[in-house]
């Protein structure tokens, strides 16, 4: 998709270019709701106040534009997902055990910063850094650490069970097998 078309689709959905896939979906549903205007909900006041100027054709045109832009952006999102998952597959291919260094490598190759990750996963940045440094002494008890690693793996679209199993083996080994 060229840049101009790209910009146009975001503009049609009234989003800025940094909008996430979830925001794209939400904006689409909202706009459809506004311009379908079939309910007597308050939401339609903004259209009703212009009813003398807005013909049914105008509304149909707008809806078509919204539909087209949403399809184009959805296609773009799926393409990006496919590309990311292909990249993840290739990164994971040679890895046997998921230690901190391996996770860090994958994160960096996906160009995700620790700060962004902390914000999205709501895990403290410090914990994430400790996970990547295999800094087991500073990590919380097993049940919490396991949860953090699980979310870490999910966020990078890795096989969460496999990553957690492998990482927690190392964690338990460090603390002695009795650690919970």
């Amino acid at each position: 998709m060229n840049r101009e078309a790209h910009r146009h689709h975001f503009e049609t959905l009234e989003l800025d270019m940094k909008a996430s896939p979830a925001e794209i979906n939400k904006a689409y549903l909202l706009l459809k709701d506004i311009y379908l205007n079939e309910s007597l909900l308050n939401d339609s006041l903004a259209i009703t106040a212009m009813s003398e100027e807005i013909s049914a054709e105008d509304k149909a045109d707008i809806l078509q534009g919204i539909e087209d832009s949403y399809r184009a952006l959805s296609e773009m999102v799926s393409e990006e997902r496919r590309a990311v998952s292909a990249l993840v597959d290739s990164l994971v291919a040679g890895i046997d055990g998921f230690n901190g260094a391996a996770l860090k490598e994958i994160r960096q190759r996906l160009e995700i910063s620790l700060d962004d990750m902390a914000m999205e996963t709501r895990i403290q940045r410090e914990h994430l850094a400790n996970i990547e440094a295999d800094n087991f002494a500073e990590l919380p008890v097993a049940v919490y650490t396991r949860g953090f690693v699980l979310n870490y793996a999910k966020f990078l679209s890795l096989d969460a069970e496999k990553v957690t199993g492998s990482y927690m083996d190392n964690f338990r080994q460090y603390h002695g097998d009795g650690a919970k």
Partner: peptide, 10 residues
């Protein structure tokens, strides 16, 4: 609150 959003869109 949603009306503000519709007005913006129009």
């Amino acid at each position: 609150i949603m009306i503000g959003n519709s007005v913006k869109s129009v």
